[in-house]
Each structure stands twice: as C-alpha cells, then as structure tokens.
Design a protein around this nucleic acid. Sequence first.
DNA 1: CAGGATTTTGCAACAGGTTGCAAAAATCCC
DNA 2: GGGATTTTTGCAACCTGTTGCAAAATCCTG
Lengths: 332, 332
Amino acid sequence: MPITLQDVAARAGVSKSAVSRTFTPGASVSAKTRAKVEVAAQELGYMPNVLASSLTTGRTALIGLISNNFTNPYFLEIFDLFTRALRQAELRPLLINLSAEEDASKSLSMLRQYNVDGVIVASSTLPPDFAKVFHDAGIPVVHAFGWSSEAPQTGRVSIDNTEAGHLAAVTLIERGYQKVGFLGGPQNAATTADRLRGFRTELETQGLVPEVQFATAYSYEAGRVAMTRALESAPEVEAWFCGDDVIAIGAMDAATALGRRIPADIGFIGLNDMNMAAWDRIALTTIRQPAQQIVATSVDLIRQGIADPTKAPQMVLLPCTLVDRKTLRARS
Amino acid sequence: MPITLQDVAARAGVSKSAVSRTFTPGASVSAKTRAKVEVAAQELGYMPNVLASSLTTGRTALIGLISNNFTNPYFLEIFDLFTRALRQAELRPLLINLSAEEDASKSLSMLRQYNVDGVIVASSTLPPDFAKVFHDAGIPVVHAFGWSSEAPQTGRVSIDNTEAGHLAAVTLIERGYQKVGFLGGPQNAATTADRLRGFRTELETQGLVPEVQFATAYSYEAGRVAMTRALESAPEVEAWFCGDDVIAIGAMDAATALGRRIPADIGFIGLNDMNMAAWDRIALTTIRQPAQQIVATSVDLIRQGIADPTKAPQMVLLPCTLVDRKTLRARS
DNA sequence: CAGGATTTTGCAACAGGTTGCAAAAATCCC
DNA sequence: GGGATTTTTGCAACCTGTTGCAAAATCCTG
C-alpha cells in the first residue's frame, strides 16, 4: 500500500508523466505543474520506487561492495570509509562477504540479478583477476587495496606494494639491522609477492638477503603461529617486516611469549597503520596506507565508470609513508 | 543486453509464463517444460531480474543492515556473522553507516525506496525507539545488541544487560574488590543504563556503591580519556567494570600510562569478549555476549517477520557468561 | 494580433517479470 | 474408450516508473 506515481498524479490532477518528470532532474516541467506535483507528493508522502525506475533507466545506485577480510580490524575502518564515500556519491553498498560465499562466481550472478551499477572489491587477498570478471560482464569495477604488478586491466587503486617493500627495507637498514626477515600474508596473495620483491631488491643493494616466511591469513592467529615457527627456524633474525599490522601484532605476541623484548631484542615493522597500531600497548612502527585517499579515489573511479561505461579502466597508485612508533630500535 | 525471460521463452518454445513458473518455487509446471526451459536458460545464461520481479511480488530479499558502530572492532565480527547468516537465509544486506547519515529519518525513506524486506539494526548506542520507525512503517525490524528495559515493542535480540551488570558485580565482589567503579559507554545509550542498574543493585546487597563514569563513545580513545579523568577524580577505585571491551582497553592503557599495574594495582572487566580480548597483550577478563546466537536469532526473527507480517514482534534475551583472563586478580 | 518558434503535456508503449483465469492437455477411473 | 478430474499452459492484465512522439499550450517577434 505504498503511495505510487499514479496516486500522486491523480491528486495533483496531472498525468503520470508529469509526476515522473518532476522527480527526474533535467526533465521538462513547468514551474506550475512542478509545484502542484510537489504539494501532492508531500501530502501523500510519496517516494519514487528506485527499483521500478531501474527497469527503464538501468540504474539502481547499488554498488556491490565485496570483501573477504572480515577478520582484519583494519577493514572495519575501510568499510567505514567506503560507506561514507558512497553515501556522499548517492550510491548504496550491497555488502558481500566473500569468505561466506562458497563460490565466487555466484556473487557475479547475484550482483547481476540486482543490477548493480558498479562493484568495488576491497581486498588484499583476492586474486588480481577476480575483478576482471565484472569488467568483462560490462560492470564498472575497481579493486581497492589489491594492486599487483601482474594484475590485468581493470580499475585499481592501491599503494605501490613494491615501493612499500622498499620503504620497509630502507627503514630497517637505516636502523642498522643486518639480519632481517619478511613475514608475508598468504603466499598466494599477489600483494605479498610485490611487497617481498620490493623488500628483497632494496636489501640486495646492501648485499643482504631476507629470511622469508608466510602467514596463512591476515589475522592475529596466523601471525602468531607463523612467528612462533619462524623464531624456531630463524632465531637470528633481528627485525621482521610483516605483511600487515594485525599479523605484526600476532607475531610480536609470539616473540614476547618466547621471552624476546621488543624492540631491544627484536624489531617489527607492519603495514597499514590501522588505528589500533597507535594504541599504547601496541605502538607499532608501520607503513601507512592512505586509506582515505584510496577509498575516495575508488569511489570516484566507479562514478566515472558509471557515467561513461566506455571509459578505459584506470589504475592509480598512491604513496605510502612510514609511521615511526616503538617497535623498531632508534636510528643508530 | 542481458538475457530476459522473453529470450528464454522463445528459445525453449514456450510462453513467458512457463519460464517464470520454472523459476518460481511451488508453481505449476510439468517436468517436461521445466526441463526445456532449464536447458534454454542454461544455454543463454539467463538469470531472473530480482528487481523486476520485486515489482509484482513485493519481495526484494534486501535487508537494511544499519549500524553506527564503525569504530568498534567488535562490530566487524558482528558484520561477519550477519553477512554469513543473511547469506544462508538467501537475504542480502544493504549496509547503512548511520554515523555518516546526517539524518536518521533519511535512512527510512531510502530503505523504502529500495523496498527492503526487513531491517536489522545492529547497534548498542542507537536509541531503543529507533527501530520503531520501521515497525510503524510496516517493515519487519529487529534491533540486535541494543536491548533495553524501556524499549518499545519491536523485535529485539540481546543479552540481558541488567544481568550482565549483576554478573560483573558478583565477579568483582567474589575477587574481594571493595572500591569498584563503572565506566559506561555513552551515557544516553539505553544499554548503559541497564548495565549500571544491574551492577548497582548487586553491589547494594553488599552495602557497596560504585563510582560511576561515562565514556563519550565505544572507542579506545574515549575509554582512555575517561579513565585518565577517573584516575584523577577517584584514584581509590580498585576495579572497574567497563561498558565494552574496547573502552576497557583504552582505560587500561590510561592506567598503565599512569604507572598502575594490572591486575596488581587495579583491575578491569570488560564486556563483549571480542576476539581481540584474547590477544596476549590484552588478555582481558570480560563478559561474553553470545554474538553468534544473537545474530542467528535476529535473522531468524526477520525471516519470520517477512513470512508473516502480522506476527507480533518478538523479544529474546540471551545469557552472557564470564570469560576469565588476566585483568582481575585471582579469587581471594 | 497573427504566425512561427519553443516549451509543456499526455498518450501509449515499454522495461522484465508475475499471476488470475479460462482453455487445452494429461490423467484417472470404471 | 468415454467422461470426469486434475494438471499444465498461454493470454492478457498488471506491478511502478520512464520516455518518444505528437498535440496542446505558451511565448516571442514584428
């Protein structure tokens, strides 16, 4: 029993078209009819049905927001940013938890059923060609936080992970660490490979080669078990570059549990700079991703893709910066 | 250019109705036509357009998932659970970040425009009558994590916050604490009042009266500043019951910063039992909300509400339990 | 004020499905 | 095999809006 166009038209004494046009920006309506319609709509409490109009316009203002990082607190910040930015752009997020999805291809058909205007993939672990499926289906898509040098041509926004690896290496070298390690996220995550490459390349210039280990997930637990193992197999490492803040925290707790003091005995540097990294009891030295900018740019790219579907996908890389706190020894 | 009903009908050599019925559970189609249609649909890659069908059926399978707790890591766990449970129920979350919304009433009209089948409010800080708006608009709604004894008649699922207050008090008494404090969440959050009431009542039986303080938000920062203030104004308090884990962590860091050792000098008990509470460097003794059950029940209530809109809203209270870790001194 | 240019308006078709109804087909029973 | 039942099917109307088109109304100019 919601109010329809019909009802408003009847009350205002005009045709359906007139009402429709009143609510369509840029349509041709005289001031007089517009006024009549607006009064009637007001009185009736009319709201156009987006879904019905999507039938003809093909627009729903719905954006599929896909992620599989629901165990990494950093992503709550990301979701916060995305929901705000989308809201600003008059777009609505249809949230998909990909780890709950038995089959990724299902999410495509689902999103097609709902006629989403675009898709944002917010994930550092999804394979770089995941987003391509949507692109191929003609749906504007951007993959945020997941850039990789091997990724195919779809919209992408991310830091330069190779650069992040460099920065980590430079920082560790600068602090005088000689035996360093890399504790990456899941080995098959494309971002991990890039970070490692950058890290390695820079170390090589100093004739250093890192110990390398991988956690099975971007999570505290994974970081903890990986580091427990690593401290056994490579106890000589003096500082670790961790693929992610939450992994770093798990790793640090593993080190603490084995009696190592941070940063006196062993150093850690993370990546992301999630809010939590600044908490006193964490105080993690880390590499900051410009999340706000990544999100803003992603939404902007999506808007462009919606406005002009023929536009070629864009790829933007943003710079990352070091945030020095207390898990690395001071510059020697 | 997506495939439509029409296309499938043509290919299968049947009427539109036949195709429609094939995809409508419980409709009358012979096995033979169903088979023909399915083949054709398969070949063409047909997917029914949910939005179009919603026009006649009135169903969208869309559920508004509203929250304003995007800074509390606990809620990432909640979102994870909700997306999974909704997925299981073949429902899709349209995510709304209420803190980004300038005006709450806008979210109602927005959700109406999208014809959502139901609304889940996942928040401990939203006023208890917030959900009522949807109920009054005829949209099935359940407010999860926000029960309050003064809440109006809408669907609700939560722990019994008064009971949680009791439990906290009993625990502190049992450990021999005499001077205790309550550091609640935002003072106007209804859940806060209930927790305080339960806490106070139980303490009274022992002739104790708590110091009470409020944080301005459910966040680390808010907990930290509130506790810094509290340690100044009420330094004699030996143990604090904090309205939430993340507040507790902030509070504990404030205490540590002022040189108090936990639990030797001062004790803390939280509420929620978020994953992070179990991290070594946190090891928070806390009261556990059965999040999984709260979510499952909420989704179930929504399903019932959709199935039978005349059904009276249900309210369910779930029990909470103590999780003992390391921020309270041992039982004396 | 006439006549042409411009703007506004309503009609009807359409977007992609669903569904009541009556006709057609299949099934059943003796 | 024939008639009564039951099931399946297609037609056409409908759900709520949008939009091309032609007619109607308004505006402008001389």
